[in-house]
Write a protein that binds this DNA or RNA. Structure first.
Lengths: 146, 146
DNA sequence: TTGAAATGTAATCAATTTGATTACAAGTGT
DNA sequence: ACACTTGTAATCAAATTGATTACATTTCAA
């Protein structure tokens, strides 16, 4: 299984808010860039808003970043869109046999190990910001334009 | 979404093969410890076998480890049970708008970033072996027995 | 103040995945 | 020959995803 593309879309949205900050970033406009339904965008924007990453208001078209580009990490987005619940990247089978030495301990033993791996992944996400994403896209655009 | 418990069950199986290496580790016995259906165990064992982690033969009851405990990492198990396809821990939305600067570059930009995070996670899994798991369970058992 | 336009949010739907279950062919040893 | 086990496919309910539709609520301008 893969982690929901809601995460990638969240990054897309934030990036677009910056790149198109001169224009009106309505859910419909963003949906056109992402290529999905405006309602999907609004749902994700609601999550980004709830986490304090963007400003959006009912009735008013458009949204913008609530923080500096360089202060928003991919981890912030990842957490915001709830693609994985805390400590649940890896699921562990429930109700193993308590009468078996392995069964009665396996959960407590691998739980922390799985958490460490999950944390390592999150740490990597925390080292990248939306500013980095915008910068990379700018670089790619310049190369394509030459 | 969470990664399939097939991974956790895979670790459980390998651990049990060691802890109960004196006995006959049939799919039925293992299923009793994991608390699931024998067919589920056989399917996972088939994957572990295909990756060279265990020995199992048709018609012959039981299985055993094909390598030294300390030479089997959680990453080996993770790869063996196919819970996540290569470079696909994070899914990225398809068909973003090619007429938008963000849309036409977002995939190539976040792809490598997501891969790095995925690799960080895998590296953490690679640092732990089944021997470590067995050792931890032994420790817990001794504490419980006192 | 009326109406157009946008956000917020819920409900529904098809597609996909998971784990459980059943069934049975094929291999093995007594 | 027979009992037992593995290998494997098919089926099924439950859960999740993303798309879609619908509509209440909010805002602002005419």
């Amino acid at each position: 299984m893969s982690i929901s593309s809601r995460f990638a879309v969240g990054v897309h949205i934030l990036t677009l808010l910056e790149v198109n900050k001169g224009g009106v970033n309505s859910s419909e406009f963003i949906a056109g860039s992402v290529n999905t339904n405006p309602a999907v965008i609004r749902k994700i924007m609601g999550m980004l808003k709830k986490s304090g990453l963007i400003n959006v208001r009912p009735g008013i078209a458009g949204a913008d970043l609530a923080k500096d580009l360089s202060m928003i990490t991919l981890l912030d987005v990842y957490k915001a869109v709830n693609v994985v619940q805390e400590k649940e990247l890896f699921s562990i089978h429930e109700n193993p046999n308590p009468e078996c030495p392995v069964g009665r301990n396996i959960q407590d033993t691998i739980g922390p190990l799985f958490s460490s791996a999950e944390t390592a992944m999150e740490k990597a996400l925390g080292n990248v910001t939306i500013a980095d994403v915008v910068k990379d896209i700018s670089k790619k655009e310049k190369l394509n334009t030459v």
